[in-house]
Amino acid sequence: MNALKNYLLVFCLLVGFQVFAQKPNLDVPYVPTKQAVVDAMLDLAGVKAGDIHYDLGCGDGRIAISAAKRGATSTGVDLDPERIKEANENAKEAGVTDKVNFIQGNLFDFDFSKADVLTLYLLPQVNLKLRPKILEELKPGTRIVSHAFDMGDWEPEKTITVDGSTIFLWTVPNR
């Protein structure tokens, strides 16, 4: 009986490790943003029809979908294939598949240089690592909005609190 228990334990551990090994190495845990915060982020950035919007670490797609509903062309990027699948399902349900696109990929390797607006809900160390790419690749005037986390010593132009969440706004300066 002990041999069977040991066998089952080893089997379960091996299966668990195999499932774990197949998951991408995520820098940021998935935590959905409340819709009131999403709306405030997009309001703060002034998202409007015709804007090109990118949401880095898009999760279930709610920010990109909300931007698309405002008339922006929106792209969400996430490393987690489950989140991308969920985001595509949510876009279909919202009727915005013609205005939004979700891509599984690493945001550090992704070209978001055409953005008019960039939204983030990442972690402080990820924002700091991303900041040089933002400042080098985005055109001056691009609006950056982050939920909860700042960009170190890059002072935001505006900071607001909505529903207990802090939201930061920056604009990419002239070079």
Rank of each mutant, 00 (worst) to 15 (best):
K5A: 06
Y7A: 05
G16C: 04
Q18S: 08
A21T: 03
L26C: 07
D27K: 04
V28W: 14
V31T: 10
K34G: 07
Q35R: 11
V38P: 14
A45H: 11
K48L: 12
A49N: 10
I52Q: 12
G57Y: 14
G59V: 05
G61I: 11
R62D: 03
I65V: 13
I65R: 05
K69D: 04
G71A: 08
G71L: 14
V77E: 09
D78C: 04
L79H: 01
E82I: 08
R83Q: 13
R83N: 09
E93G: 02
K99Q: 12
K99H: 12
V100R: 04
F102C: 07
N106E: 09
N106F: 11
F108D: 01
V117E: 06
L118Q: 08
T119D: 07
L122M: 09
Q125R: 01
V126Y: 00
V126A: 00
R131T: 03
K133D: 02
G141H: 05
G141R: 01
T142C: 11
S146Q: 08
S146L: 08
M151Y: 07
T159R: 06
I160K: 05
T161A: 04
S165I: 06
T166D: 09
F168I: 10
W170T: 00
W170R: 00
W170Y: 13
T171C: 01
T171Y: 12
P173W: 13
